[in-house]
């Protein structure tokens, strides 16, 4: 059990990083990474929502959709859960933890359309993970996203001062740097866990 959880965590953070090997969550990854501070804030918000969404969607799937034979409604149900979850988290944080809200608040609405969140929930179902495995996969997947976006933001801060052809201005140079980071992350793919 413990080794299983460890291998899920290591897999989600390093080997099958959500951004660099599965391409889940690329939009916020490219959009919110111009500064390390914003990137860290976005990453933290994603960890939080991915963990919660994994837990709640697992419960809904196992206790409502599967017993009623409504598996075909999974996508619809999950996206509604994620959208309302994000709303609730936003309201809750605003009222009870204003300090955290001021740090994460502006990123929360963006998370609804982050495909990493819907992706992790769908992958939990696809991989037949149990409750604990799902939550672990959600949180560590989020941590992997955070690691990726923070690393990428620090690269971008440096790229901003370098010279490159004019037509690479903006997105293209970001994509090329992201590609190089993906190449670096490929080094983890031969890693053996408890082999």
């Amino acid at each position: 059990m413990l080794t299983n959880i460890l291998s899920i965590s290591l897999g989600a953070i390093l080997i099958n990083n959500f951004i660099f090997s599965q391409f889940l969550g690329c939009c916020p990854f490219l959009g919110c990474s111009s500064k390390v501070d914003t990137a860290a804030g976005m990453g933290l918000a994603v960890v939080f929502v991915m963990g919660l969404a994994s837990a709640i969607c697992w419960v809904i799937d196992q206790f409502i959709l599967v017993p009623l034979g409504l598996e075909f409604l999974q996508t619809l149900a999950f996206i509604l859960v994620i959208a309302s979850l994000v709303q609730f988290v936003e309201m809750f944080l605003k009222k009870s933890v204003p300090s955290l809200y001021s740090a994460l608040g502006i990123y929360l609405p963006l998370i609804t359309t982050n495909c990493a969140v819907l992706g992790v929930v769908l992958l939990n179902v696809q991989n037949n993970y149990n409750f604990i495995e799902s939550v672990v996969y959600g949180i560590t997947g989020g941590l992997g996203f955070m690691l990726a976006i923070v690393l990428f933001a620090s690269v971008r801060e440096r790229v901003a001062f370098s010279e490159y052809p004019e037509c690479f201005e903006g997105f293209p140079i970001c994509l090329v740097s992201a590609g190089l980071l993906a190449l670096a992350f490929m080094g983890f793919s031969g890693m053996q866990i408890f082999g």
């Binding site: 897999g11 696809q126 991989n127």
Partner: peptide, 9 residues
């Protein structure tokens, strides 16, 4: 048989 590979089952 169903087992875990590198990415999923």
């Amino acid at each position: 048989t169903t087992f875990s590979g590198a990415q999923g089952s």
